[in-house]
């Protein structure tokens, strides 16, 4: 009896310890970058690192006072917003039709776009965009963001549209509602959960994307990830402002996703299901 209890306590302690160790491993970089962003240059470069210091917002002030940062912030917001809106307008009708007329060959097309190595597509895009004057424009960036958003949205929404019973639509048609009207007024409200899920995942994807704006934008349409990378190129040892920039770019996306955490977790579970 005694040994049994002892064993349970050991298991319990082991479990808690393992939990703490794994959380520390996954959270440590976040804590570290936050600490660094609040340090003065001297404290940031001291060896061994200091853990107790007087926090300063100097780094944040320095980053936020740069015109380039504000420009990139504005660009990021514009590109993310218009990508998400355009994505819904284009993908929802397409997904609806595909869900109602099951078409198997499409799954391979969608699968392939999910696997597309973007750098390969960026080669012709770069040439085409330069030719069409889309290089370094919002439209260009929104277009390339749509290439990964649309297949993903169509694919994720299929399940939601299939769950809407056809009887509901038939009732609306009998009442004299047009097909389009039924879609907008009846079906869309029924898949609201899917729309929030896709917007949450999409916000994360579009806000974080680096390789597209890296290749397809100069200064004018440059988004935050490219700008933040620039800090490393300019001065790889100036840890303070670099950390502040990293914190500033991560905050909005973490806040947004945590607000919609339920939908985010469901989206991940859905991504794993099929």
């Amino acid at each position: 009896m005694e040994t049994h209890r002892l064993k349970r306590i050991i298991v319990r302690v082991g479990f808690v310890a393992a939990c703490i160790v794994s959380i520390v491993f996954f959270i440590f970089p976040f804590c570290w970058v936050l600490l660094m962003s609040l340090k003065t240059p001297d404290a940031a470069q001291s060896i061994p690192p200091t853990f107790i210091f007087r926090p300063t917002f100097e780094n944040f002030r320095e980053v936020l006072s740069q015109g380039a940062f504000l420009n990139a912030l504005k660009n990021s917001i514009i590109v993310t917003f218009f990508t998400l809106v355009a994505n819904l307008i284009i993908s929802l009708p397409a997904s609806y039709i595909i869900a109602r007329r099951r078409q198997k060959w499409l799954s391979f097309g969608i699968l392939f776009t999910q696997m597309a190595p973007w750098i390969v597509f960026l080669l012709p895009w770069y040439i085409i965009f330069k030719k069409l004057g889309l290089y370094d424009t919002y439209i260009g960036l929104v277009l390339v963001n749509l290439t990964f958003m649309i297949p993903f949205t169509i694919w994720l929404m299929l399940g939601f549209f299939e769950d809407v019973p056809v009887e509901v639509e038939e009732a609306a048609w009998l009442d004299g509602c047009s097909y389009t009207g039924t879609f907008v007024r009846i079906v869309i409200p029924l898949v609201k959960g899917g729309i929030i899920t896709i917007t949450t995942l999409g916000f994360m994807g579009v806000w974080n994307v680096f390789i597209f704006p890296l290749v397809l934008s100069g200064y004018q349409a440059q988004t935050l990830p490219v700008l933040v990378y620039g800090f490393l190129v300019d001065d790889s040892l100036n840890f303070g402002p670099m950390s502040a920039a990293a914190v500033l770019i991560t905050l909005p996306v973490v806040a947004f996703v945590l607000l919609n955490q339920k939908y985010f977790q469901r989206g991940i579970a859905l991504g794993g299901r099929k």
């Binding site: 939990c19 976040f30 660094m36 974080n208 790889s236 914190v247 996306v253 973490v254 945590l258 977790q265």
Partner: peptide, 29 residues
């Protein structure tokens, strides 16, 4: 809470986290 904390690496901007790791892995500092 544990589950929420474990979501952080997935959500955070990869470039920002790569910067953080490159600072953490700096051979001297």
């Amino acid at each position: 809470v544990v589950r929420m904390l474990l979501l952080f690496p997935i959500i955070a901007t990869p470039v920002a986290m790569s910067l953080t790791w490159s600072m953490m892995m700096n051979p001297f500092m």
